[in-house]
Design a protein around this nucleic acid. Sequence first.
RNA 1: CGGGGUAUAGCGUAGUCCGGUCAGCGCGCCUGCUUUGGGAGCAGGAGGUCGCAGGUUCAAAUCCUGCUACCCCGACCA
Length: 490
Amino acid sequence: MAKNFPTREENYSQWYNELVVKADLAENSAVRGCMVIKPYGYAIWEKMQAALDKMFKDTGHQNAYFPLFIPKSFLSKEASHVEGFAKECAVVTHYRLKTGEDGKSIVVDEDAKLEEELIVRPTSETIIWDTYKKWIQSYRDLPILVNQWANVVRWEMRTRLFLRTAEFLWQEGHTAHETKDQAVEETLTILDVYAKFAEEWMAVPVLRGLKSQSEKFAGAVDTYCIEALMQDGKALQAGTSHFLGQNFAKAFDVKFLSKENKLEYVWATSWGVSTRLMGALVMSHSDDNGLVLPPKLAPIQVAIIPIYRKDEQLEQISEKVKTIKSALEAKGISVKFDDRDTYKPGWKFSEYEFKGVPIRLAMGPRDLENGTIEIARRDTLKKEIVPIEGIEDVIENLLNEIQEKLYNKALDYRKEHTFEVNDWDEFKEKIEAGGFVLAHWDGTPETELKIKEETKATIRTIPLNNPQEDGKCILTGKPSKERVVFAKAY
RNA sequence: CGGGGUAUAGCGUAGUCCGGUCAGCGCGCCUGCUUUGGGAGCAGGAGGUCGCAGGUUCAAAUCCUGCUACCCCGACCA
């Protein structure tokens, strides 16, 4: 029941879990910290995948696949990389089970111990760079622009549905280039792809920028990110694009002969977005009645519900609906006609609201007489009776309008919750209340850490094309040239 | 791994202090009839080793001991 949803002021996580389970998106699995994504939720992920995959291909990338298991020794080749992931790796030590001495239980066969343990990939840089070593000899082999869709495992202490699950689905791009400039350009190209996807498909406005050195990816030279603000005022890192320099090339000894016949290390990038985006989607738009999906990512864009007493009424309605349905489908709009007689109309109304279906149509005997149909939109919950004539154009426009409105609403929210702050007390107050806080910082990791300890706020990003201005660090008062974005984050 | 909580039907819970008509309630589920423009009403029904293992007792959901799992807050993190 909608009224049983905890409000946003209450524990957000509880609200979120309720929402997700009731909206049929996902539920917790028996495996600790992993998730079961139900068919409806997975359909949203598939839509995201399809859109992203096209954008990658349009920018010259290809898909490939690499092993799930990584020899333990690979992980230790890049020092900061191993340090970043060592504490959250699942390790495979044996390859066989056997029946226990009691004849019933199943135990690990100690004779089947692996010579070298395997790590379930927390990310694939190492195994991919081990492979690239074999692929690259000449500048003619470059660039390599490869993406993989995969699952990864990070054994987090604490998990949170979609945002930090022990296993998650993602894509990870791994590219190799001749020059530093080409690699940096690639990093920024992908950052732009991510930002466009977030804004144009998910209707989630994002900040584009650089991570501070202490927040960057383990093994990267620079980490670029897109950063979104959720409805509860907390920030969410929605995607990252890393300039890896020559770190992995050196660790895995990947060299090529340049046009000048010189042996050089290749330049690298890696980048990824995950099922965390599903969390971002839910937490950006949903309300106390359930999900609100942007039309471009909604598996069902229009749900049609018949209202009837007698079977012959249903027949008449179905007849009319068929025409509407095919007219909409001709425009590429996905339509579900829900003529199940096992649920009543009111039940279905709530069901599609939970699921975030952008537009709901209802047709009953009154509409049959008048040549009308009831149209209800999920984002505003408003409904009106309109003529059936030309309904497909009305809906097509309305879907576009809803997509745009969701984005603008989220953008307005972010504007209202972005503050320029010059005073430490005000800083603490604004951080506590939630939102992006733009403040000066002296650029040192020590100050960054101290601010984190005192306020739980981290530097979310140093925006691209950040305006330069003289100021004083919010904590130390030392001189600073630009403001950075602070917030409490998921 | 530190601190705090919780465990009773598919879900949510009452009962635990004070042992004994104590295994109950709501939602959901099943059957029938009436209903169908915002999660229907009535009647009947199914569903439980009270997290697990010991112990105390004439008697344990309730008291004691040990274990396990989950949740929240930290540390970690896409």
